[in-house]
Design a binder for these strands. Sequence first.
RNA 1: UCCCCGGUAGCUCAGUCGGCAGAGCGGGUGGCUGUUAACCACCAUGUCGGCGGUUCGAAUCCGUCCCGGGGAGCCA
Length: 458
Amino acid sequence: MHAREAVGSLSAVHDPPLVAVPPETPVSVQPIRIRDIAAHAGADVHIRGWVVHHRSSGKIRFLELRDGSGYVQCVMGKNDVAPDVFAAFDDVSLEASVEVVGTVRSDPRSPGGFELGLKHLRVVGRSAEYPISPKEHGVGFLMDERHLWLRSRRQHAMLRVRAEVMRGIREYLDGQDYLPVDAPILTPNACEGTTTLFELGYFERKAYLSQSGQLYNEATAMAFGKVYCFGPTFRAEKSKTRRHLMEFWMVEPEAAFLDLDGDMALAEGMVEHVVQRVLARCRDDLATLERDVTKLESIRAPFPRISYDEAVEIIRKAGGTIEWGEDFGGDEETLLSQAFDKPVLVHRYPAQVKAFYMKRDPERPEVALCVDMIAPEGYGEIVGGGCREESLEALETRIREHGLPLETFKWFLDLRRYGSVPHAGFGLGVERTVAWITGIPHVRETIPFPRLLDRMYP
RNA sequence: UCCCCGGUAGCUCAGUCGGCAGAGCGGGUGGCUGUUAACCACCAUGUCGGCGGUUCGAAUCCGUCCCGGGGAGCCA
């Protein structure tokens, strides 16, 4: 109990111990995170984590630990430690949780440059026959073991970049004076009336999982001027491609008095900021993922801005077959992205392929004042947005044309009855953005627990 | 929903012409004082995705269903 109390009192300004330290392990030093190990060179430290790797050579034993902040190699010789400490290694296996005390020393033979000369070792939780071995595995197997796969280096790198992307998005929008105002996830009806929604019971009624915060954003934008919502979004489409998830995260800024050029500038500025922030703060993670960072370093505003008409020309010259009036498929987006080394903003699509609330170009009623951002290297559309129709009459006409029920949009039409203004916004898909920045081919690794067609486990 | 590919040990896979079910890794036991996905020796492990058919004989050929992967459509 003495050791336990000592740790408890010392750890007031450090990480508290997550497990009770038994009396036989006389831990009297503060727990540290591996990331900070260089600051403790020459000193004794207390580290808790999981076994990534272990090797024994009879009288010398090696242990590689992960605590979530980094990796460190631990060493002990048979003649350097008490017999019970040396023997504790016998219970060590892949992904067993352990706590150790040792002396930090610089050693070029250790990955990371520092190693821990062990004084104490205790197995906190054993790990029998950990399923994921250090050898190669297939995607199907790893997805079944996703809860364990998350412990691997590659997944750490991926999800740290994701976290940095999300921080960068919030930092940028907050800095532009956008207020985070989230939209509901349970909605009474289809927002855009286009994609298939997940339906669920809402007591005696039906409800749907949100496919976009767009319509609610328009209400909050009229209340606060500049807003964004950031949360999960659901699409019940039976999509089975590397770019699709049933549940994904989307940030959607919306601003009153914003025009199409301003909307494009906002999207461009945000994407530039996010990419540069990841480059500045996640170099090691990008290296782990073997990302060619020169392709990211050139992501600086301004991005090319082309009309849909021009995009069709580029696609045709590149060998694509597309008729004016059709939306772009994956192949067309890839051809288009290959013509540029930056994200490309494509504006003024044919109105027929866009949502009902998109504003028509007054000079060309057949096109909408909208914009998509196509990521480089074939990662597809990462942003979709544009100007919203602010005229009550025009919007009512659009709703009727799309065969949507006017009464369910009463509140949405109210926004045009009471002080309507020109406004615009967009949605950016987090997973596609992370896939592009990390350079991985499939979005499923960019979210901790992907929801795919026919895959809901774990 | 449609098209293509696949399913053999815990994992990754090989299995020839239809003729004894295999390797590496992982696991177990033992050895080794500087290992880096350590190494060496030995040991254990199978509803060959399910069902039906052809055959003296099927992992192998045929039918069907299930599951997984890739792609299309739709979208972020």
